[in-house]
Design a binder for these strands. Structure first.
Lengths: 247, 247
DNA sequence: CGACGTATTGACTCGGCTCAAAACCTGTGG
DNA sequence: CCACAGGTTTTGAGCCGAGTCAATACGTCG
């Protein structure tokens, strides 16, 4: 898993990371250099907090390896997991458009490598450079779509369907059956991510097992028949299976 | 309510509507004129469909008066109300960033007056004009914030709290107690908007009545004590009462 | 007054949560 | 190699919130 980071460590420079991000792809070389100069690669342990809700946003982050969770905490101490992000995703950048205040918190859930980039640099790049603003628009829009699906999922799908939906999103379109995949992080985290308790997750998984043909053994999931699963899951959703997951 | 539209009908020109929108505020006069030229004012009956999910997006809309509901329908025939919008709000514009396909449906829930604007005009304005792109970014960002609150609300608040939250958002910050307000649309619609059935709404409203000091009589709500209500509602949320409602 | 649509109430079911106990892993040290 | 400690996952029993279906009340408009 994290060997990926170690293996390619030699090839890892801020510049190369930046060039791999669609947000930066449209920038000219000088601007990319400027970003690379101002950024640092960070290695973090499990459970490290990148920032908290209402913090002033100094940095945003690009994930190089590992999983990061976005969350909010309620006054009475509950936590809602808003999203889980992995390699290649950016986070915290949207604070630029929110008066420079983070509207959610972010923490690692395992050892994570990431690139830390100053917000003000991005802010001025957007203000100055039209192509950057357009790239940011595309990024925000993708985000919006993701969130809309989230709302739909929470309102219309039950626990088992949400779990099935989660698994379908781990499948790549052209894959041949039977599809074998590994759950990307702890079940209790998946549960939180899907807005349920881990006990409920466990039971709902059993139900999914009995209602479809999938097989779960530890963290390994086998899907013998995609149609069977998607039939069960997508009936309570507005779009059918290959419901374009948005990077 | 709708007299507002009738009264000011004389002053209503596409141009004046457009100039009242923050998205268009930054445009120069010529561009505003071009938009006004290409737009039309429409009067619609209750239940009119503006567009459906997956429709190619030809137009987007600015609401002049009345309420419009945004929704998605699942394959098995359920409907989720994503948002309810009223005068001054835009809708359908985000399709520009989604390959020109609407990602939700929109329909009126009462007689509505609106301005219909061609999408391609906005699309090219964003592509060409940096200030327009920035305005669009701000608009999308506001939208994103709204959605995030939605997700939080659905995961963390129970039915009564969501109803209370809905009422708090109808209050204006500086208002003196007791606050008297009128529900903006049918209770069954509010229920759908808050992701619950109308029976549940009715019961949850009773509960809210018994747990706080609010008084409901038909469509009129009286809040004798804001703190009392917000204490009940906001404990299950990440931000406290005057949780900036975003236009 | 009667009729229709909206809102409420009642009785029941079911899904998901809580609390508590057992089972399962995984890594550590003897 | 085994035993054990720590965490994670699963299972069990009971509860509560929200959905369903059906019946009743309310309001408003003709």
């Amino acid at each position: 898993m994290h060997q990926t980071a170690a293996k390619t460590a030699a090839a890892l420079s801020p510049l190369s990371i930046i060039q791999g991000q669609s947000l930066f792809a449209a920038m000219d070389d000088r601007l990319q250099e400027a970003f690379a100069q101002a950024s640092q690669i960070q290695q973090l342990q499990k459970g490290a907090v990148l920032f908290l809700q209402d913090d002033p946003a100094e940095w945003f982050y690009v994930i190089i390896s590992g999983w990061v969770k976005l969350f909010t905490e309620t006054l009475d101490g509950n936590e809602a997991v808003i999203d889980m992000l992995s390699a290649g995703h950016m986070l915290g950048d949207s604070a630029i458009l929110e008066d420079g205040i983070h509207t959610f918190g972010a923490a690692t859930v395992e050892p994570v490598t990431l690139l830390r980039v100053p917000c003000n640099l991005l802010k001025s790049a957007i203000d100055r450079d039209h192509t950057v603003a357009l790239a940011m628009l595309r990024s925000l829009s993708r985000h919006r779509k993701r969130q809309t699906r989230e709302i739909e999922s929470l309102t219309l799908q039950n626990a088992s369907q949400r779990i099935g939906c989660f698994m379908l999103r781990l499948c790549h379109p052209g894959q041949a059956e039977p599809i074998v995949l590994t759950l990307p992080y702890d079940k209790s985290l998946i549960a939180a991510r899907l807005g349920m308790k881990s006990e409920t997750f466990s039971r709902a998984l059993n139900k999914l097992r009995s209602e479809t043909s999938i097989v779960i053994k530890g963290t390994v999931v086998t899907i013998p028949n995609l149609e069977d699963l998607s039939g069960y899951v997508c009936s309570a959703c507005s779009s059918e299976f290959p419901c374009a997951d948005l990077g």
